[in-house]
């Protein structure tokens, strides 16, 4: 009986190793587009007209920036089917690829397009192939450009830039968070500094370094700071994805190490010495 259990442990260990390696590969492939995206929770809300006052700053040459804000409990509707659903509305100024790199890119000029998640599409249309259909939000009609694979119901749309003549107190299009990415790998450590110096954007940085865990490029202090921030604060759409991938990776790594343990036990015959003989 004991040798059979020994063999079963070896087989299970091999299976767990294989499963965890495949799963980790799949996860890494998903998160690679998120690499080096910096999320800043601004200490003071910013408007596009103040962040980009003129064409003097060529952000394309340095870093890609997307301003965004999230508002929970927003209602979007499909008037034709008389269906309503509650979503987290994400208004952005900039490209959506910094927030959702694996989906259709919504650009800042596209003020009539939007992205929704698959669950919301099913709720409103009873279908998940709804690209090109229209939905309504705050008395405005948006055309669905693409679908997001996101665990929380979301509705993402572009906000227009206010006229430059508008005074600061009259601004009604304000953003509380920034997603930024260095266009040159050499600049990736200076993103926060550039945001502060060039665009006067300051706040708490949530270091979301998507990728393989552990990432040896980051110190444990940085990991700890980011994790505490995620645990204590309410996570935004990108941070939610980060947490999901993080938990997935921890899950698969635990399988990997368990499988490795079983296999080592099988190979060395430790089980006989430690458990069965005693």
């Amino acid at each position: 009986m004991m040798p059979r259990l020994h063999l079963a442990l070896g087989v299970t260990g091999l299976f767990l190793l294989l499963f965890s390696v495949i799963s980790l590969g799949w996860t890494w492939n998903k998160v690679k587009n998120y690499q080096d995206i910096h999320i800043i929770h601004l200490s003071k809300e910013a408007s596009p007209s103040k962040v980009f006052p003129s064409s003097s700053i060529k952000e394309e040459e340095t870093i890609a920036i997307t301003l965004f804000s999230e508002e929970k409990g927003q209602i979007i509707s499909n008037k034709y089917f008389n269906r309503f659903t509650e979503v987290k509305a994400i208004s952005i100024f900039g490209s959506s690829t910094l927030l959702f790199p694996n989906s259709y890119p919504l650009e800042k000029e596209d003020l009539t397009g939007c992205l929704i998640d698959i669950h919301t599409a099913w709720e409103l249309f009873g279908d998940v192939d709804v690209v090109g259909a229209n939905i309504d939000y705050q008395n405005k009609t948006y055309e669905i450009r693409g679908l997001l694979n996101h665990p929380v119901p979301v509705f993402l749309y572009e906000s227009p830039m206010s006229p430059p003549s508008l005074k600061e107190e009259e601004e009604n299009i304000l953003f509380s968070q920034v997603a930024a990415k260095a266009l040159h790998p050499s600049d990736k450590k200076e993103v926060a500094q550039k945001l502060r110096n060039l665009y006067n954007l300051e706040g708490q940085e949530s270091i979301l370094n998507f990728g393989r865990i552990p990432d040896f490029n980051l110190s444990w202090k940085e990991h700890k700071s980011a994790l505490w921030y995620l645990i204590l604060k309410e996570s935004n759409c990108v941070e939610t994805v980060y947490l999901i991938y993080l938990s997935q990776q921890i899950y698969y790594y635990s399988f990997f190490f368990l499988g490795l343990f079983f296999f080592v036990v099988y190979r060395k015959g430790l089980l006989d010495h430690t458990f069965f003989n005693s």
């Binding site: 089917f81 279908d127 709804v130 690209v131 259909a133």
Partner: peptide, 8 residues
Amino acid sequence: LEALHGDG
């Protein structure tokens, strides 16, 4: 109305 589905 909930029986209706649409793809746009």
